[in-house]
Design a protein around this nucleic acid. Structure first.
Lengths: 221, 221
DNA sequence: CCTGAACCTGAGCGGGCGCTTAGCGTCGAT
DNA sequence: ATCGACGCTAAGCGCCCGCTCAGGTTCAGG
């Protein structure tokens, strides 16, 4: 009678729906079957709390309500879990930035949108983001190389927006690569310090950071 | 004939001098005796490369040219090593910010100086800074509380400068605590991405970041 | 019913972990 | 010359790690 387990963790139990009532995309909906998804979510939580190396496979399996051996039916190693998490998270991050970069509007609008949504994700999904952004070095060489390539694409998208703004004269940026790096660094580090019990909502942090970045690129609006 | 070992690692072998030829303060000079310092430096390097949890006491002792047991003559546990590193590093960071904050000059000058030297330290000593800033969660509750108190003091110093600038009308900052947080987050994250083989020197990053922060606080210079 | 496939568990292997202990060599002080 | 203090090592203890494997349960198709 283990069957009721798939409903026990109600937060992630909706089997095919990808949208919450709030309209936010349900994360990890692409991970199937259900048991694999529950293990992956358990791993995200454990990795975010304790770090990859300090997390045991027994802990992950326990959080998912399974025995330690069950993990190895769905994933070959503990590292594969991290790889899958990192890959999905970086895909999402790239998607967020690319959507904003490809949208219409002035460079200032596109940059603000990109920063706002990128920061909102790092704050709202800070558990995932923490793993995605800070546990990179635990991956093996090949997996790490794959992830680094995705990060370079994120960097390229942001640099593109800033370059557009410089070209139109909207922005005043002496060092485009350096400023791009700083903007991304600023946004990513939100995942490290953001606290759900803190005074700011993800929306508020997104708005604040969009304004700060607007200033960094010398936009006079 | 182990005595020559103290000269083997020439970079840190000057026994009492605290200044390098370049005038930069020699880190870890306060740690004595020599064997304890060598172990601590080895730990910093290992923690920075692999992370606290992935580093073994055997690795630390090996890097210092000693047997695993030697570590426990100078430090009670592996965690005490991290604690000492974190404590000394945070003391140094606080000292850097406080020196700039207490110096004479306009708020803009003091903020630029603080950011420049703070960033220069995070870039130049990025090995240490990485451990200091990113391995905090590996500490036990009491040690962590002590370190967090130091971080709050750093935050208070930066906030003070920004508040001064707002008071004199030099700065235009709608959200002082939020901007303070962002400035510090930006500087700290340098330790994560800075690469010695990269295109920028610590001085250059410091100058770039001082300029970016000047923009963030709305200083029209 | 039977069967094969899918999924999961209990038990446990080999190994490396943090840390301890008994004892050795080298000192300065007597 | 002797001695305790100090710094260190070789050996290893007990534990828990990532991971495996034989076997049990469930379920759809025939």
């Amino acid at each position: 009678m283990v069957f009721t387990l798939s409903v026990e963790k109600g937060r992630t139990a909706m089997s095919t729906a990808q949208e919450t009532p709030g309209g936010e995309m349900q994360p990890w909906a692409e991970v199937t079957p259900d048991a694999a998804r529950r293990l992956l979510i358990a791993a995200v939580e454990a990795f975010a709390e304790r770090g990859y190396h300090a997390t045991t496979t027994r802990d992950i399996a326990g959080r998912a309500g399974m025995s330690p051996a069950a993990l190895y039916i769905h994933y070959k190693t503990k590292e594969e879990l991290l790889h899958r998490i990192s890959r999905i998270g970086h895909d999402k991050a790239l998607d967020i930035v690319r959507t904003a970069a490809d949208a219409g509007g002035t460079p200032a609008e596109r940059l603000s949108d990109a920063v706002r949504s990128f920061v909102r994700w790092h704050a709202g999904q800070h558990t995932t983001a923490r793993v995605v952004q800070y546990e990179l070095e635990a991956l093996g060489p090949e997996a790490r190389a794959e992830i680094i390539a995705l990060r370079r694409q994120v960097d390229a998208e942001v640099r593109r927006i800033i370059q557009d703004g410089v070209a139109t004269g909207e922005f005043d940026v002496p060092d485009v690569p350096g400023t791009t790096l700083a903007v991304l660094s600023l946004c990513i580090d939100v995942a490290r310090w953001f606290n759900v019990d803190g005074p700011r909502t993800p929306d508020e942090v997104g708005a604040l950071y969009a304004d700060l970045v607007r200033r960094m690129v010398g936009f006079k609006g």
